[in-house]
Amino acid sequence: MEIKIEHLSYTYNPGTPFEKKALDDISLTIGKGEFIGLVGHTGSGKSTLVQHLNGLLMPTQGSVLVDGEDIAGEGYSLRQLRFRVGVVFQYPEYQLFESDVLKDVSFGPKNQGLSDEEVLARAREAMRSVGLDESYETRSPFELSGGQKRRAAIAGILAMNPQMLVLDEPTAGMDPKGREEVLDLLRQINRERNITIVLVSHSMEDVANYADRVIVIVDGKIRWDDSPSVVFTRIEELEQTGLRAPQVSYLLKDLQDKGWDLDRSAVSIDAAAQEILKALSVPGQQTGGAVEESGKDR
Protein backbone atom coordinates (compact mmCIF):
# COMPACT_ATOMS: atom_id res chain seq x y z
CA MET A 1 0.00 0.00 0.00
CA GLU A 2 1.03 3.56 -0.59
CA ILE A 3 0.06 6.54 1.52
CA LYS A 4 0.19 9.93 -0.08
CA ILE A 5 -0.20 13.02 2.06
CA GLU A 6 -1.00 16.23 0.23
CA HIS A 7 -0.73 19.71 1.78
CA LEU A 8 -1.92 18.42 5.15
CA SER A 9 -2.51 20.95 7.90
CA TYR A 10 -4.01 20.20 11.27
CA THR A 11 -5.22 22.63 13.92
CA TYR A 12 -6.22 21.59 17.43
CA ASN A 13 -9.31 23.26 18.94
CA PRO A 14 -9.95 25.62 16.03
CA GLY A 15 -11.89 28.74 16.89
CA THR A 16 -11.18 28.65 20.63
CA PRO A 17 -8.57 30.42 22.77
CA PHE A 18 -6.68 27.08 22.86
CA GLU A 19 -6.25 26.95 19.07
CA LYS A 20 -2.94 25.44 18.03
CA LYS A 21 -1.62 24.65 14.61
CA ALA A 22 0.17 21.33 14.91
CA LEU A 23 0.89 20.52 11.27
CA ASP A 24 1.46 22.98 8.48
CA ASP A 25 1.33 22.03 4.80
CA ILE A 26 2.84 18.55 4.99
CA SER A 27 3.29 16.66 1.74
CA LEU A 28 4.94 13.28 1.51
CA THR A 29 4.56 9.82 0.07
CA ILE A 30 5.17 6.60 1.94
CA GLY A 31 5.82 3.74 -0.45
CA LYS A 32 5.54 0.02 0.12
CA GLY A 33 8.34 -1.64 2.04
CA GLU A 34 10.06 1.53 3.17
CA PHE A 35 11.68 1.90 6.58
CA ILE A 36 11.18 5.52 7.59
CA GLY A 37 12.51 7.28 10.64
CA LEU A 38 10.36 10.21 11.77
CA VAL A 39 12.21 12.57 14.05
CA GLY A 40 11.44 15.91 15.63
CA HIS A 41 11.43 17.78 18.88
CA THR A 42 8.76 17.16 21.54
CA GLY A 43 5.66 18.98 20.34
CA SER A 44 6.84 19.23 16.74
CA GLY A 45 3.75 17.42 15.48
CA LYS A 46 5.12 13.90 14.96
CA SER A 47 2.39 12.19 16.95
CA THR A 48 -0.28 14.30 15.27
CA LEU A 49 1.03 13.21 11.88
CA VAL A 50 1.05 9.58 12.98
CA GLN A 51 -2.62 9.77 13.95
CA HIS A 52 -3.49 10.86 10.41
CA LEU A 53 -1.97 7.71 8.96
CA ASN A 54 -4.79 5.52 10.28
CA GLY A 55 -7.53 8.10 10.31
CA LEU A 56 -7.70 8.77 14.05
CA LEU A 57 -7.43 12.42 13.11
CA MET A 58 -8.76 13.98 9.94
CA PRO A 59 -6.90 16.79 8.20
CA THR A 60 -8.11 20.33 8.83
CA GLN A 61 -6.81 21.09 5.34
CA GLY A 62 -5.32 18.91 2.63
CA SER A 63 -5.84 15.20 2.21
CA VAL A 64 -4.50 11.76 3.02
CA LEU A 65 -4.72 9.30 0.13
CA VAL A 66 -4.33 5.57 0.74
CA ASP A 67 -3.76 3.77 -2.56
CA GLY A 68 -5.30 6.79 -4.24
CA GLU A 69 -8.43 6.90 -2.06
CA ASP A 70 -9.14 9.86 0.18
CA ILE A 71 -9.66 8.63 3.74
CA ALA A 72 -11.97 11.58 4.46
CA GLY A 73 -14.17 10.52 1.56
CA GLU A 74 -17.75 9.48 2.19
CA GLY A 75 -18.17 5.76 2.73
CA TYR A 76 -14.46 5.15 3.25
CA SER A 77 -14.06 2.44 5.88
CA LEU A 78 -11.71 3.83 8.50
CA ARG A 79 -12.01 0.60 10.43
CA GLN A 80 -10.58 -1.38 7.51
CA LEU A 81 -7.81 1.22 7.20
CA ARG A 82 -6.90 0.67 10.84
CA PHE A 83 -6.39 -3.03 10.20
CA ARG A 84 -4.07 -2.21 7.32
CA VAL A 85 -2.09 0.48 9.10
CA GLY A 86 -1.14 -0.79 12.54
CA VAL A 87 -0.24 1.99 14.96
CA VAL A 88 1.71 1.23 18.11
CA PHE A 89 1.35 4.22 20.41
CA GLN A 90 3.75 5.41 23.06
CA TYR A 91 3.88 3.11 26.07
CA PRO A 92 1.62 0.55 24.37
CA GLU A 93 1.73 -1.69 27.45
CA TYR A 94 -0.83 0.63 29.05
CA GLN A 95 -3.45 -0.61 26.62
CA LEU A 96 -3.31 -4.25 27.80
CA PHE A 97 -6.57 -5.28 29.42
CA GLU A 98 -7.33 -8.98 28.98
CA SER A 99 -6.92 -11.73 31.55
CA ASP A 100 -4.17 -13.48 29.62
CA VAL A 101 -1.66 -12.52 26.95
CA LEU A 102 -3.12 -14.67 24.20
CA LYS A 103 -6.57 -13.12 24.60
CA ASP A 104 -5.11 -9.65 24.55
CA VAL A 105 -3.12 -10.28 21.39
CA SER A 106 -6.28 -11.74 19.85
CA PHE A 107 -8.27 -8.55 20.42
CA GLY A 108 -7.25 -6.95 17.10
CA PRO A 109 -7.80 -9.97 14.82
CA LYS A 110 -11.07 -10.72 16.62
CA ASN A 111 -12.28 -7.23 15.77
CA GLN A 112 -11.39 -8.00 12.17
CA GLY A 113 -14.11 -10.63 12.23
CA LEU A 114 -11.87 -13.61 11.50
CA SER A 115 -12.74 -17.18 12.42
CA ASP A 116 -11.66 -18.47 15.82
CA GLU A 117 -8.97 -20.72 14.37
CA GLU A 118 -7.52 -17.95 12.30
CA VAL A 119 -7.53 -15.53 15.23
CA LEU A 120 -5.68 -18.10 17.30
CA ALA A 121 -3.18 -18.82 14.55
CA ARG A 122 -2.45 -15.14 13.99
CA ALA A 123 -2.11 -14.40 17.70
CA ARG A 124 0.29 -17.32 18.20
CA GLU A 125 2.36 -16.29 15.21
CA ALA A 126 2.53 -12.67 16.38
CA MET A 127 3.59 -13.75 19.85
CA ARG A 128 6.28 -15.98 18.44
CA SER A 129 7.63 -13.24 16.20
CA VAL A 130 8.09 -10.88 19.16
CA GLY A 131 9.79 -13.64 21.13
CA LEU A 132 7.06 -14.68 23.57
CA ASP A 133 6.77 -18.47 23.64
CA GLU A 134 3.73 -20.65 24.54
CA SER A 135 4.36 -20.39 28.26
CA TYR A 136 3.29 -16.73 28.09
CA GLU A 137 -0.07 -17.46 26.49
CA THR A 138 -1.90 -18.12 29.75
CA ARG A 139 -0.09 -15.53 31.86
CA SER A 140 -1.75 -12.30 32.89
CA PRO A 141 -0.33 -9.36 30.93
CA PHE A 142 -0.10 -7.43 34.19
CA GLU A 143 2.46 -9.77 35.74
CA LEU A 144 4.95 -9.51 32.87
CA SER A 145 8.06 -7.36 33.05
CA GLY A 146 8.08 -3.97 31.34
CA GLY A 147 9.88 -5.20 28.23
CA GLN A 148 7.66 -8.26 27.91
CA LYS A 149 4.54 -6.11 28.23
CA ARG A 150 5.83 -3.88 25.47
CA ARG A 151 6.41 -6.89 23.24
CA ALA A 152 2.99 -8.32 24.01
CA ALA A 153 1.44 -4.99 23.04
CA ILE A 154 3.37 -4.86 19.76
CA ALA A 155 2.27 -8.45 19.09
CA GLY A 156 -1.32 -7.23 19.52
CA ILE A 157 -0.82 -4.92 16.54
CA LEU A 158 1.20 -7.42 14.49
CA ALA A 159 -1.56 -10.00 14.85
CA MET A 160 -3.78 -7.85 12.66
CA ASN A 161 -1.32 -8.49 9.82
CA PRO A 162 -1.02 -4.81 8.90
CA GLN A 163 0.66 -3.78 5.67
CA MET A 164 2.18 -0.81 7.40
CA LEU A 165 3.40 -0.52 10.95
CA VAL A 166 3.72 2.86 12.62
CA LEU A 167 5.48 2.95 15.97
CA ASP A 168 5.59 5.99 18.24
CA GLU A 169 8.75 5.69 20.31
CA PRO A 170 8.56 1.93 20.71
CA THR A 171 11.77 1.77 22.72
CA ALA A 172 11.10 4.59 25.20
CA GLY A 173 12.16 3.59 28.69
CA MET A 174 13.64 0.24 27.64
CA ASP A 175 17.08 -1.10 28.45
CA PRO A 176 19.69 -1.29 25.64
CA LYS A 177 19.16 -5.00 25.09
CA GLY A 178 15.39 -4.65 24.91
CA ARG A 179 15.73 -1.72 22.50
CA GLU A 180 17.93 -3.67 20.17
CA GLU A 181 15.58 -6.64 20.23
CA VAL A 182 12.57 -4.53 19.36
CA LEU A 183 14.40 -2.66 16.60
CA ASP A 184 15.88 -5.85 15.16
CA LEU A 185 12.38 -7.29 15.15
CA LEU A 186 11.17 -4.30 13.13
CA ARG A 187 13.99 -4.69 10.65
CA GLN A 188 13.17 -8.36 10.28
CA ILE A 189 9.46 -7.67 9.71
CA ASN A 190 10.39 -5.01 7.19
CA ARG A 191 12.77 -7.21 5.22
CA GLU A 192 11.03 -10.56 5.40
CA ARG A 193 7.42 -9.53 5.03
CA ASN A 194 7.98 -6.29 3.13
CA ILE A 195 5.89 -4.39 5.66
CA THR A 196 6.35 -0.63 5.63
CA ILE A 197 7.72 0.69 8.91
CA VAL A 198 7.41 4.24 10.19
CA LEU A 199 9.51 4.64 13.32
CA VAL A 200 9.00 7.75 15.42
CA SER A 201 12.01 8.20 17.62
CA HIS A 202 14.06 10.60 19.68
CA SER A 203 17.13 8.49 19.25
CA MET A 204 19.14 9.59 16.24
CA GLU A 205 21.29 6.50 16.62
CA ASP A 206 18.30 4.21 16.24
CA VAL A 207 17.07 6.06 13.20
CA ALA A 208 20.54 6.14 11.65
CA ASN A 209 21.06 2.43 12.23
CA TYR A 210 17.70 1.17 11.03
CA ALA A 211 15.91 3.62 8.73
CA ASP A 212 16.47 4.04 4.98
CA ARG A 213 14.83 7.44 4.96
CA VAL A 214 14.64 10.16 7.56
CA ILE A 215 11.89 12.75 7.85
CA VAL A 216 12.63 15.65 10.17
CA ILE A 217 9.69 17.70 11.38
CA VAL A 218 10.25 21.13 12.87
CA ASP A 219 7.30 23.17 14.16
CA GLY A 220 4.77 21.19 12.16
CA LYS A 221 6.67 21.47 8.87
CA ILE A 222 8.88 18.97 7.07
CA ARG A 223 12.43 20.29 7.26
CA TRP A 224 14.26 17.39 5.68
CA ASP A 225 13.12 14.26 3.93
CA ASP A 226 16.13 12.33 2.71
CA SER A 227 18.47 9.43 3.38
CA PRO A 228 20.14 9.33 6.81
CA SER A 229 23.57 9.95 5.32
CA VAL A 230 22.38 13.24 3.83
CA VAL A 231 20.35 14.46 6.81
CA PHE A 232 22.83 13.57 9.52
CA THR A 233 25.79 15.29 7.90
CA ARG A 234 24.03 18.63 8.47
CA ILE A 235 25.05 18.74 12.07
CA GLU A 236 24.88 22.52 12.58
CA GLU A 237 21.48 22.87 11.00
CA LEU A 238 20.12 19.96 13.02
CA GLU A 239 21.37 21.53 16.21
CA GLN A 240 19.77 24.84 15.34
CA THR A 241 16.41 23.10 15.36
CA GLY A 242 17.13 21.62 18.79
CA LEU A 243 17.99 18.16 17.48
CA ARG A 244 21.24 16.28 17.27
CA ALA A 245 23.01 14.03 14.83
CA PRO A 246 24.06 10.49 15.79
CA GLN A 247 27.30 10.33 17.76
CA VAL A 248 29.26 8.75 14.91
CA SER A 249 28.45 11.76 12.74
CA TYR A 250 30.13 13.98 15.31
CA LEU A 251 33.10 11.65 15.47
CA LEU A 252 33.54 11.62 11.71
CA LYS A 253 33.18 15.38 11.53
CA ASP A 254 35.79 15.91 14.24
CA LEU A 255 38.18 13.57 12.47
CA GLN A 256 37.60 15.37 9.21
CA ASP A 257 38.25 18.70 10.92
CA LYS A 258 41.57 17.24 12.10
CA GLY A 259 42.51 16.73 8.48
CA TRP A 260 41.52 13.10 8.00
CA ASP A 261 40.46 12.10 4.55
CA LEU A 262 37.00 10.68 5.27
CA ASP A 263 33.62 10.29 3.72
CA ARG A 264 31.19 11.63 6.33
CA SER A 265 28.09 9.96 4.99
CA ALA A 266 28.45 6.87 7.19
CA VAL A 267 25.83 7.05 9.95
CA SER A 268 25.81 3.60 11.52
CA ILE A 269 28.58 2.50 13.86
CA ASP A 270 29.65 -0.35 11.60
CA ALA A 271 29.85 1.79 8.49
CA ALA A 272 31.74 4.49 10.38
CA ALA A 273 34.21 1.93 11.73
CA GLN A 274 34.85 0.71 8.17
CA GLU A 275 35.38 4.28 7.05
CA ILE A 276 37.88 5.00 9.83
CA LEU A 277 39.78 1.77 9.20
CA LYS A 278 39.96 2.64 5.54
CA ALA A 279 41.31 6.09 6.35
CA LEU A 280 43.85 4.62 8.77
CA SER A 281 45.15 2.21 6.16
CA VAL A 282 46.07 5.12 3.90
CA PRO A 283 49.80 5.76 4.40
CA GLY A 284 50.82 9.08 5.90
CA GLN A 285 47.47 9.65 7.64
CA GLN A 286 47.65 11.87 10.72
CA THR A 287 46.43 9.92 13.72
CA GLY A 288 48.02 11.48 16.77
CA GLY A 289 45.46 11.92 19.50
CA ALA A 290 42.63 12.91 17.18
CA VAL A 291 40.25 10.15 18.25
CA GLU A 292 40.92 10.68 21.90
CA GLU A 293 40.32 14.40 21.68
CA SER A 294 37.09 14.14 19.79
CA GLY A 295 35.89 11.62 22.35
CA LYS A 296 36.43 14.18 25.05
CA ASP A 297 34.19 16.77 23.41
CA ARG A 298 31.13 14.64 23.48
Partner: peptide, 16 residues
Protein backbone atom coordinates in the same frame (compact mmCIF):
# COMPACT_ATOMS: atom_id res chain seq x y z
CA UNK B 1 -5.97 12.54 28.76
CA UNK B 2 -5.17 8.97 29.59
CA UNK B 3 -8.67 7.83 28.65
CA UNK B 4 -8.30 9.57 25.30
CA UNK B 5 -4.96 7.93 24.68
CA UNK B 6 -6.22 4.44 25.54
CA UNK B 7 -9.29 5.00 23.41
CA UNK B 8 -7.05 5.90 20.46
CA UNK B 9 -4.89 2.85 21.03
CA UNK B 10 -7.88 0.51 21.17
CA UNK B 11 -9.51 2.17 18.18
CA UNK B 12 -6.28 1.47 16.32
CA UNK B 13 -6.85 -2.20 17.18
CA UNK B 14 -10.31 -2.05 15.66
CA UNK B 15 -12.32 -1.41 18.82
CA UNK B 16 -15.63 0.27 18.16
Amino acid sequence: DEANRIMNAQTARGAD
